[in-house]
Write a protein that binds this DNA or RNA. Sequence first.
RNA 1: GUGGAUGUAGCUCAGUUGGUUAGAGCGUCUGGUUGUGGCCCAGAAGGCCGGGAGUUCAAGUCUCCUCAUUCACCCCA
Length: 418
Amino acid sequence: MNEIQSLRGTADILPPQSALWNEVERKVAEHFERYGYELIRTPIIEQSELFLRSIGEDTDIVEKEMYTFSDRKGRSVTLRPEGTACVVRAAMQHELLGQKIRKFYYMGPMFRYERPQAGRQRQFNQLGVEMFGTYSPLADAETISMMVRLFEMLGLKGVSVNINTLGDKESLEKYRAVLRERARANFDKFCPDCQRRMEKNVLRLLDCKVPSCKEIFQNDLPAIKDCLTDEAKAHYETVLKQLDLMGIKYVETPQLVRGLDYYTHTIFEVTHNSLGSQDALGGGGRYNDLVESMGGAPTGAVGFAIGEERLMIALAAVRGEEEKAKAADVFLVSMDEEAIGENLVLSDALRTAGISVALLPEKASAKSQFRQANASGAPCVLIRGGDERGKGIWNLKMMESGEQKEFTKEEILSFFKE
RNA sequence: GUGGAUGUAGCUCAGUUGGUUAGAGCGUCUGGUUGUGGCCCAGAAGGCCGGGAGUUCAAGUCUCCUCAUUCACCCCA
């Protein structure tokens, strides 16, 4: 066992798994780009202030989960716990938000100091998108459909989409106040968690899993939709109607809530049954007031983030297949010391021509080299030794049939070009 | 932050009521006639039994502490 090990809640992504990550990230990027999104890369470290103001000071993330410390000049800095705030900051700083609609996607590590669990790490990766510059409910629908189609494109079956609306900021404030008041009246009937939530984060009362709390809620407490303005109601209905038109399946979930303060109107979450208790593959929603609250012009915005580790877990559960290392096109076997150098020259030409080549740079027995060639999965080997040197050729052996044939260097190059 | 389970070889795991030199399978490496893989056979490497303290003549095994993993709560992606 090593003396120095990776930090708690962090993970190495090793081959051959890492190849799958590459593939998924490439496909996801292409998918987002088909919808007109452009890649944005922001620093993983920011002024702490950014997250205090955007995510909300009373949220769990800010209160107890941030990696916050002082830099050498005593400034408070934080490892980003999520991507939206960073994208908003960057877009505002570089004057990217104007009259036009702008769409950005990002991918990379986020940091939250939590107790690790299935699908939950302290450093984890997110794939996310943000669209700025529109209040249209159709943008919400497009965003949700993009997420659903993304999972389909990846071959991930068994996802479910939950949708809810929070209404605009004013009705949400009002709802919070009413909810808190009514909940306090029933204080004793709630579970200890809910009693705490009433003061810290009332909305969390909605998704408590304790049956008795659920019951109280249904009987004695108001629902969000009772407090919605006509405008907010219309917005939500348009989103749902558009999803119907696009054939996107979803479940209206009145108890769905988000943990970040900046959401307004449509919110959604995609879950997968393979994930255990941390079953949210991704989530997001509209956040119309965030840009303005950060000091910008009023700007409608929608976005979502997907947990990449969770996506990988779900994909593995659905596909069930082990990832294998990619085999080289050809394995070069050197029968004597001189052949190693000759093979290296040949490999140089082959690789320049775009062919992947494996060979050992040091002396090894023929048996050992063939064993390795076989294990590597390369379909053929090229053999060079004293005999071949005499004739100025290589022997090409097909691994499956065992057939062997003499080739000159030129013949080899043209053989592999097809 | 709270509760439960688990830490023995690279991986999956045995290891009796405490008792001699800690094992298996898989994987890795080296051989099995000169320059030829898979199957087979032989051999080898690889362990501070997570770490520390304690009980004992004696601890992988019992006790305590600690660290980590894992599951759930909480929270979220």
